[in-house]
Design a protein around this nucleic acid. Structure first.
Lengths: 261, 261
DNA sequence: CGACGTCGTTGAGCTATGTCAAAACTGAGC
DNA sequence: GCTCAGTTTTGACATAGCTCAACGACGTCG
């Protein structure tokens, strides 16, 4: 849980506090050398104008558990994650929580927001991000249609993923949810080059439960079930090794399960 | 349920069948006179170039129960609904179904699709749509950045709505789901000018169940509960009258419940 | 206008998953 | 290596919502 750390935006807003968090201003973290650029929307930026992007970015970093922003705050920034991992979530007034997504390096963070943030975002590990003032990034979109096109594609993908999640939340059993979770996470981490057989879970059981619409206990029990069935092995450091690819994909029941991937 | 009618795209694809369904080609349904344009993305089209939009549109109509397209088919078209109502849904291999959305006049239909449709779409009542070949609409986006900007805004809104639905599906009780459903539907229909107190439900109890992640029986029971609690009245012609605005908003627990609207 | 098929409602019992509580593990610091 | 706080796992029990089944309402079509 959040350790009552103040959200970044508050720390910085209009106050004159020492800027503890941003690590560098324009030019300090040149986009040209960015490791996640090929996968991020920045890849759509024409190389010769990359400096314009670098000129409006601020690099920020968060420690585990630190909120980036809270639902309902004025949405002043967009972000691109360069390292670490965050969760985004919505709360009900009595504390029930739905984690609506996990955000990883190269992901764009800021869609779905209007005047205010539509959800809260909190770092799960030490996290690095590029921060853009909204107006400035949007002006950039005007100037570089390729960038806007790319953002639309990202929104499209997220929309498709959201519908997949609705199917999961509305109609899948606990076992299917966990299986889908593992295969989907495996697919996204392998997109960034890592093995698909070993999935690292930077989030707690509670977060997984709140993501899948289950209780912590059910998540835990279901992991044990999958373990006893020989489908996964639970390894140290929050790693899960997928032992039986076919079975877990069958359980996950995503259309692409039949691909046997 | 679908009456085994063939999806529109099949009926028309490359075959030489008489085009029974499209009601008019370019120019026949001039965008200038379109009743939903002010609310649809077409509103972002500069008036003086509206003819270009009209030039690439085909008007199609569906009868109740007729599929527009099926999940997995090549996604050749985008649509804008001009009349009626559709449901979009995803299926699991054993027939479990998640209705991921209802689509009403002025809504854009086509986001979230990649090469193939990410979900199936089926008319719930007699429905009229404008149909655009994907490439052509996308070429239009290139030419009219305002249009693309508008589409991005739509995607944004849908993303926010999707997250709200995840909260509903993952964490709300049956009563809260039905209450949220009614208030949200009331809000969208009032956007198109109708009363907010009387909500018309063009969809069956089964559809509502598949939309909210509940069984038909639970939907039905919950409606009766709300009725007995004096919160709604069930009227003929699938209408629901909201008697106690405050209570239903409290139940719905959407952040804006506190607005008392 | 009456019969039929579909859809919605109600009832009764079942089960997957939630809740509460305690035990076992894990990792950070000392 | 030991301790402590937090997390995960396991257990026992409770329950919201599901399933199966019957009944009722309603619109449609002959």
């Amino acid at each position: 849980m959040a350790k009552a750390a103040k959200p970044l935006t508050e720390l910085e807003g209009t106050t004159a506090l020492p800027r503890a968090v941003p690590r560098g201003g324009p030019g300090v973290a040149p986009c040209g050398a960015c490791a996640v650029r090929p996968l991020a929307i920045c890849a759509a930026m024409p190389l010769e104008h990359l400096a314009q992007l670098a000129a409006i970015v601020t690099s920020v970093s968060l420690t585990a558990g630190q909120p980036l922003f809270l639902e309902g705050e004025p949405a002043r920034h967009h972000f691109i994650v360069t390292g670490g991992a965050l969760k985004i979530y919505k709360l009900l007034s009595d504390g029930r929580r739905q984690v609506t997504g996990f955000v990883f390096p190269s992901d764009f963070l800021g869609l779905a927001n209007k005047e205010t943030y539509a959800y809260s975002a909190e770092a799960m590990t030490r996290t690095e991000l590029c921060r853009f003032r909204r107006e400035k990034l949007e002006a950039m979109l005007d100037r570089f249609p390729q960038l806007e096109r790319r953002l639309l594609a990202v929104a499209n993908d997220e929309l498709a993923a959201a519908q997949e999640r609705m199917l999961l939340l509305g109609r899948k059993t606990a076992k299917e949810r966990i299986a889908s979770f593992l295969t989907t996470l495996g697919r996204t981490t392998s997109r960034r080059g890592e093995s698909k057989q070993v999935v690292t879970l930077p989030m707690s059981r509670t977060d997984i439960g709140d993501y899948l619409g289950l209780s912590t206990e059910t998540v835990s029990r279901t992991f044990t079930e999958l373990k006893l069935a020989g489908i996964v092995r639970l390894e140290p450091k929050s790693r899960v090794r997928i032992l039986d690819d076919r079975k877990i994909n069958l359980l996950a029941e995503c259309e692409d399960a039949t691909l046997g991937l």
